[in-house]
Simulated scan of single mutants.
Amino acid sequence: MRTELSLLAAAVVIAVGGFVAPDWLSFLLTLAFAKALVVLGVVVQMRMGLVTFGQALFYALGGYAAGMAMQHLGVRDAFVLLGIGVVVSAGFAAICGLLLARYRDIFFAMLTMALSMVLFGVLVKSSALGSTDGFNVSLPTYLGWEPSPESAKGVIFLLTVAVSAVAAIAFHRLLKSGLGLIAEAVRENEVRVEYLGISPRSAIYANYIFAAGISALGGGLTALATGHIDPDMAVWTTSGEFVFIAILGGTGHVAAPFVAAIVFAAVRTFAIQESPHTWQLTLGAVLLILIIFLPKGLWSLVSKRRKQTTETPVSNTAKVNA
């Protein structure tokens, strides 16, 4: 409960800060939070000992499903569009998961990347979906209310913060649930899990579908925020970016992906601004330094601080007793 209240408080502070922050900062945070949702899907699988290089598959499915529903079905409500993206992605994951749940290690990673690249190839070759250029997405409505063009970006920012808060709380509860505890047990020893009468494949299958749904939310929010969708959402380098952010933040807390996504977006924006021709080198160097000195991720700084705070009163009590 304490963690959930902290997440809600942080969401309120960020939402209020969005009203006074410059537009570029609100937009940066919107995209960072949307990508953090996809990273949550990556972390779900990392906690089971599985690394996916194809999470961009569901990121793209969420975005394209929302965009196509708006363009071809005339659906404009943001909540319905996001829901369509989640349903499409979860349904696709339910089919693919039947195969992927059988594999582990590098085989799982390569198969997920292969599925993502299949979608990338289909999108690139499909002229009806704009081929390599993609297509634009109009501004959505919200339960019948249509904001003005000037306030549309701010509304999407608030929507992204709200969805991120709900998703973070759901993710936290998942980790504390039986399925979340089984996931860690599967990572440590699948054989012992089977001796308990629990199927590791079923646990992996369920987590894979959850990861797909939460990643689709990130793709749908990105499409609504940028107003554009293109096949690069499904390319393998996008999946690699999500894995990189997951490693950068660590898996120790539900807030870690959001902190890492913000740091990643800020560093990349600064690198592009200061060295537009060598920004990849600057970005890589900075992030490499962070990973070398913080191998357990950025959240390890918070964990270490909490550990020191907890140990200090214990040490003082021991000295008094002595």
Rank of each mutant, 00 (worst) to 15 (best):
A285R: 09
R102A: 06
S148P: 00
I84G: 01
L298H: 11
T226W: 08
C96Y: 07
A90P: 03
G252T: 07
G74H: 14
V193T: 13
L98P: 01
A212G: 04
E241C: 05
L5K: 09
E311L: 13
G83W: 13
V314M: 11
V259F: 07
I289H: 12
Y205G: 13
A285Y: 14
A90W: 02
G213A: 08
P200M: 10
T226G: 00
F27C: 02
A223G: 06
F242T: 02
L288P: 13
I156Q: 07
L224D: 05
W145P: 03
S275E: 15
V254L: 10
A56H: 06
L283C: 12
E184G: 07
E274K: 07
M70T: 03
Q45V: 12
L294F: 07
L115H: 03
D133H: 12
F293C: 02
A152W: 11
S26W: 01
T282D: 11
A36Q: 05
L111Y: 02
L221S: 01
S127C: 00
V20I: 13
R173T: 05
L25Y: 06
L29Y: 05
L175R: 14
L100M: 08
V186W: 04
R104L: 09
S26E: 08
V51R: 06
T226D: 09
M117K: 02
L98G: 11
G284M: 10
M233A: 05
A60I: 13
E4I: 09
N207S: 15
R305F: 05
V16F: 14
G297R: 01
T112G: 05
V38D: 08
V80I: 14
A211N: 07
G97L: 05
S148Y: 01
G144Y: 00
S148I: 02
V42M: 08
S303C: 00
A34Q: 11
T269L: 03
P149R: 09
F33Y: 07
A168W: 00
S215V: 04
A78S: 04
V122M: 10
F157I: 04
E150H: 01
Q308C: 00
L82C: 02
N316G: 02
F120G: 01
L111V: 08
I84A: 02
G49E: 11
F270V: 15
A114M: 11
A162H: 05
Y64T: 06
T269R: 07
A216M: 15
T282K: 07
I247V: 14
A183F: 09
H228A: 05
V39I: 10
A9E: 05
P200F: 11
T30D: 04
A93D: 10
K304Q: 12
S164D: 09
A101K: 11
F19K: 08
A34S: 15
F293Q: 07
K125V: 05
M48Q: 15
T226S: 14
T30C: 03
A36V: 03
A234Y: 10
G227E: 12
A285C: 13
F107V: 14
W236P: 02
P276Y: 09
V166K: 00
L31Y: 08
I245W: 06
L174R: 03
G227T: 11
F19E: 13
R104F: 03
V39N: 04
Q45K: 02
A203E: 06
S148V: 00
L37Q: 08
M1L: 13
L82S: 02
A9R: 08
I229P: 04
I292E: 15
